[in-house]
Design a protein around this nucleic acid. Structure first.
Lengths: 190, 190
DNA sequence: GTTTTTATTTTGTGATCACGTTTCTGCATG
DNA sequence: CATGCAGAAACGTGATCACAAAATAAAAAC
């Protein structure tokens, strides 16, 4: 989810077991779960690897993110008090630091923390779980994305999201979240 | 997914293994996958059972169904030729038979087949997979639902969906799908 | 030097087992 | 009749093993 692995990275049960000092059995269960959630791909021979998504799949997952996360943000809006907005601003400054430090994993993790912190207020655990499933599928792809465009620009739409939250502007919030979620991924699919 | 198990039904790895003539290992992997997809619940002691959803969770899952399936139907609309609509009508008559036969499992399975047949035309596999994940979570609850109201009414909104498909009426289709998806589940959560 | 074939290593799968924990059953007690 | 308690049965977990399939490395042929 955090982009620690590149797309198409192959994994083995014995390797995972060795890495975490367990036998094959727990490694197998973890891998099976991640496969069920789309975080890992299972080849026909039972081999497992990180997904290497094509442009159309990336675009579809971006659409799903927009669909779910716009709804989550919209539901969180009425419950978003100042303490939450302040916390989001703190997270946002951390994102800026991660961009400056050229740390893609830290960037992705903090960026997702920003979104999750907001969506937790929506009181919709099942919807949030579905959104996180999509994040899981996009992890390696996002790593590639922020590796290719190594710019120093902080996420521009996060400020718009914060402004819409403060103003209680629901249409503005929906548009800002949709833009933020779609923005980067459009670059990869074109 | 098809409502073969009631909510809260307990399952054991050894029991599943005995039922399908395998050892505990494959049973464990299957259960872990189903838990990851939300089809089964894992208690704190590792015991597994069918989920017994509360009213708010049911309502949330209904909202997710509406969100995803309205989008899927909308994407399928431009590609819905007459052969597809005819197939949907055939499936719909089967649903009527299932209602008449008082067969809840057959009803649920055929009803979901109706929806899946339409959504397959949307060319959005990830979105469809997410929708099926929600169906999986709602299976036992739907069984309860169609067990409590043992009426003889066929799904009224399916005809509206078919009419909107024929007319190429996108707003009408979106409303019809939303109504069909929300309809039954609202009864259970109130 | 490139391609094909063979041998070796590595991999996933399903089964089985021992262990600690939890749950259930039946009986005694209040 | 309800309640608490001890014994027994059943459960999930992690580990290990044998086996077949697959991928890799090495060797042979052209």
């Amino acid at each position: 989810m955090h982009g620690e692995l590149p797309p198409g990275q192959a994994l083995t049960l014995r390797g995972i077991g060795r890495e975490f000092d367990v036998s094959m059995t727990p490694a197998r269960e973890a891998v099976r779960r991640l496969v069920a959630e789309g975080a890992l791909q299972l080849s026909s021979s039972g081999r497992v690897s990180t997904p290497d998504l094509g442009p159309d799949r990336i675009e579809e997952l971006a659409s799903i993110r927009a669909l779910l996360e716009v709804e989550l943000a919209s539901r969180a809006l009425p419950r978003a008090h100042f303490a939450l907005i302040e916390r989001l601003q703190t997270i946002n400054t951390t994102i800026v630091q991660m961009v400056a430090a050229r740390d893609p994993v830290g960037y992705i993790r903090t960026n997702l923390e920003f979104h999750r912190t907001l969506y937790l207020r929506a009181q919709a655990p099942a919807m949030l779980a579905l959104a996180e499933t999509v994040w899981l599928q996009l992890g390696p792809t996002m790593r590639d994305l922020y590796g290719k465009l190594n710019r120093t620009e902080p996420p521009q739409f996060h400020r718009v999201i914060l402004a819409a939250l403060k103003a209680g502007d629901e249409p503005g919030l929906r548009l800002a979240v949709r833009s933020d979620v779609t923005q980067g991924l459009r670059l990869l699919s074109s």
